[in-house]
């Protein structure tokens, strides 16, 4: 009996001592969540050129119906599966390539910021030139992006070559 009591007392002391140690993981977690917040708040929505505003609004509709399922509402994509549309060269760069991706789809894994995305994108050539111009203008001026509008003439020219 005595043995048990001594063991118990000693164990309790040890447990109390262990509990009293500083709790490091909590501090680390707090620090992380602050970094995430800062990142998000810098992604302020860019203002679009005034002329493109109507196109952007139509594009917003098309985006939510056709694109959001994979690229997500926030344009952030899905890690390793569906590419993000936020501040990438694919979205902000060469418009001909961007229009081409909508018309022909993308069937190869691609790399963005040292990350590989493996899901294919089917062609969206059933969309009209106007719908494609609108949705691309929307994407290029939303999610923190700011780039020139895409016109129906530009879509038409690319479609003629595909």
């Amino acid at each position: 009996m005595k043995k048990v009591i001594i063991t118990l007392t000693l164990s309790i002391v040890v447990v109390i001592l262990l509990w009293a140690q500083p709790k490091k993981p909590l501090a680390t977690q707090q620090k992380k969540s602050t970094t995430t917040q800062t990142k998000k708040s810098t992604a302020v929505q860019a203002k679009a050129p005034a002329g493109a505003q109507a196109s952007i609004e139509r594009g917003r509709q098309t985006y939510s119906q056709v694109c959001a399922a994979c690229h997500q509402k926030d344009g952030g994509g899905v890690p390793r599966l569906n590419p993000p549309l936020i501040k990438t060269e694919y979205v902000l760069g060469d418009k001909t390539r961007l229009i081409g991706i909508i018309l022909k789809g993308l069937n190869q894994p691609i790399e963005i910021d040292d990350e590989e995305y493996t899901n294919p994108m089917p062609p969206q050539s059933h969309l009209t030139d106007q719908q494609i111009a609108d949705v691309l203008t929307f994407v290029r001026n939303n999610f923190g992006n700011k780039a020139s509008a895409v016109t129906t003439a530009e879509v038409k020219a690319v479609r003629a070559k595909t």
Binding site: K2, K3, I6, T7, L10, S11, V14, K23, L26
Partner: peptide, 25 residues
């Protein structure tokens, strides 16, 4: 008289010390 008990207690102390404690929350 109690020495043998203490040594056993010391053994169990070691065991208890290696008992893994969960993180906060």
């Amino acid at each position: 008289v109690t020495a043998p008990f203490f040594s056993e207690a010391a053994d169990s102390l070691i065991k208890e010390a290696t008992f893994i404690r969960p993180d906060a929350a």
